[in-house]
C-alpha cells in the first residue's frame, strides 16, 4: 500500500514539456530525495503532487484516494474540488523562499492554519505552535517577526508551520537553496530529526550529502524524466547512468 502514487505524469508549460512521464510510488515512512540540475523538472513534479501546478496527463493518488486521472482521451481530469482540498491537506509543503507571512509573528504564522482550517480553539493552537517551535529549536523566537530571523530560522519556522497541519507527507522544495552555506546545517538537522520520526518525506534538493545520509531512495531527474533511481548509496556512490555521473561530478566538485 502506497501513501502516494504518481503514474506517468506529463506537464507542459506553453510548448515546453517539463515532465515527460514521471512515476513515483512512496510508502509510508519513506524518505525520498529528488536530485537533478535546475530545469530538470524536479520542483515542478513536486508542485504537481499537491496541485500547485496542474498536470496535463497522468494519475495521482494520495492515501488511497484519486486526485487526478486520465479520461478516455488520455487527458488529466481532477476529482471534485472538495475531495482535492481534503487530499491536499495531507501534504505539507516547505518552499525554497520560506514564504512566511511577514505581518504575523512566528507563533501566529504557525497558529494561523490550524485556527482557520482545522477550527481548533486559540489555546489549543497556541499550545500546538509552542510544541512545534520547541521541536525546531526556536521557542525563544515565538513573538518575533519573520524579518527579525535569519534565513535558516525562517525556514525552520516554515517547517513548523507545515507540521502544524499534521500532514501525512512533507514535501520540501529545495529547502536550503536560498540559504547561506553556514545556515543550511540547522535546517537539514531539523529535517533529519523528522526523518527519524518515520515521517514520509519527499525532498527536492541539491544537498547530495543529505540525500545520501537520510534518504531511503534517491531519484535523479534530467530533462523531465527519471534517469535513475534506487537506494542512496547505489545512485550517489555507484551511479550507472552517464548523466547521473556527470551531474554528481559537477555537484560534488562545487563543494
Amino acid at each position: 500500500m502506497y501513501i502516494l502514487q504518481a503514474i506517468d505524469v506529463y506537464k507542459k508549460f506553453h510548448r515546453l514539456e517539463v515532465l515527460k512521464g514521471i512515476s513515483l510510488q512512496v510508502k509510508k515512512g519513506e524518505v525520498i530525495a529528488i536530485i537533478g540540475s535546475s530545469g530538470s523538472g524536479k520542483s515542478t513534479f513536486l508542485r504537481c503532487l499537491n496541485r500547485l501546478e496542474t498536470i496535463d496527463k497522468g494519475f495521482i493518488e494520495i492515501d488511497g484516494e484519486i486526485m487526478v486521472q486520465n479520461n478516455a482521451d488520455g487527458k488529466a481530469i481532477y476529482s471534485p474540488e472538495k475531495d482535492i482540498e481534503r487530499l491536499r491537506r495531507k501534504m505539507g509543503m516547505v518552499f525554497q523562499n520560506f514564504h512566511l507571512f511577514p505581518h504575523k509573528s512566528v507563533l501566529q504564522n504557525i497558529m494561523l492554519a490550524p485556527l482557520l482550517v482545522k477550527n481548533i480553539n486559540e489555546a489549543e493552537a497556541k499550545a500546538l505552535a509552542r510544541v512545534l517551535l520547541d521541536k525546531v529549536g526556536l521557542d525563544y523566537k515565538a513573538d518575533n517577526y519573520p524579518f527579525e530571523l535569519s534565513g535558516g530560522q525562517q525556514q525552520r519556522v516554515a517547517i513548523a508551520r507545515a507540521l502544524a497541519m499534521e500532514p501525512e507527507i512533507m514535501c520540501f522544495d529545495e529547502p536550503t537553496s536560498a540559504l547561506d552555506p553556514e545556515l543550511t546545517g540547522e535546517v537539514l538537522q531539523v529535517m533529519k530529526d523528522l526523518a527519524l520520526e518515520n515521517r514520509t518525506m519527499i525532498v527536492v534538493t541539491h544537498e547530495i550529502g543529505f540525500a545520501r545520509e537520510v534518504a531511503d531512495r534517491v531519484i535523479f531527474m534530467d530533462e523531465g524524466v527519471i534517469v535513475e533511481e534506487g537506494k542512496a548509496e547505489d545512485v550517489i556512490i555507484n551511479p550507472k547512468h552517464e548523466r547521473t555521473k556527470a551531474f554528481l561530478s559537477t555537484v560534488l566538485m562545487a563543494r
Binding site: H99, F101, L112, V117, M165
Partner: peptide, 19 residues
Amino acid sequence: GQYEAADVLGLTKMQTMSK
C-alpha cells in the same frame, strides 16, 4: 509565494485575501 503558502496550508481564497 504568499498565495501559495496560504494555499498549501488549506486556506480558502477568501481567507487568503482577508488574512
